[in-house]
Design a protein around this nucleic acid. Structure first.
Lengths: 113, 113
DNA sequence: GGCGACTACCTAGCGACTCTAGGTACTCAG
DNA sequence: CTGAGTACCTAGAGTCGCTAGGTAGTCGCC
């Protein structure tokens, strides 16, 4: 290992980034859609403002975990930037899922629910 | 409202603080012990450095969620600062547990585990 | 023709948190 | 006398989340 710095030694950092990766693991999506889809598929429990999501998408792209491309929409609607996982992003998602499972049961043990 | 700022609109902020509250909900503990106990009861999954825990304890005390008192130890060992939950801390822990449950199932839905 | 609502993107800057990397001070074993 | 253990602490850097704006176009409504 150590071909690259581990991004989440402790989870907690980049947690929302992981959720975005989770969504993009299902299908290609654009920022505005991610905000809505996150709210919908979490039944309102996770409601990230745009000012959180757009910078997160830029970080994920900067770090090579996702790739984006512009798509023009017919009918004068604003163009969209669609993102999909890169191969590195797939691996990060898989690792992140494991981290999440570990963290979840650890936190459950501590919180005693 | 605004008798006091809501501390966790989205979880994620003060998550480790919540874990500390969870431990202190079981019994009085001191900082150094919390580090070890967190590592032990999470089976190594959560391993916070002292530089994270001590400032977190100070914040929690500053915010009135925990109260600390010094205890001298016989035998020349360093004195310890034991912390226990205040009433406000108990309430915060209960609310935090609910937040955690909501966040957990939301994240599970998104990550699809 | 003007107003609000919606889609879709973006950024600067504040505040908050985590962690690194030290430091203090004392005890005990070898 | 060196190292390991206990137990506390802090400054500073880096990162992240969110507020609060802004741009720009379309659409429906009165």
């Amino acid at each position: 290992m150590s071909e690259q710095a581990a991004p989440s030694p402790q989870l907690s950092r980049g947690e929302f980034g992981l959720l975005i990766l989770g969504l993009l693991g299902r299908r290609e999506m654009y920022g505005y859609e991610i905000v809505a889809e996150l709210r919908r598929s979490s039944e309102g429990a996770i409601d990230l403002p745009e000012g959180t999501v757009y910078p997160a998408l830029r970080r994920l792209e900067r770090d090579g975990l996702i790739g984006g491309h512009w798509v023009d929409v017919v009918g004068g609607a604003p163009r969209r930037r669609y993102y999909r996982l890169t191969e590195q992003g797939e691996r990060a998602l898989a690792a992140g899922r494991e981290d999440w499972l570990r963290f979840k049961s650890a936190a459950d043990a501590v919180l005693g629910s």
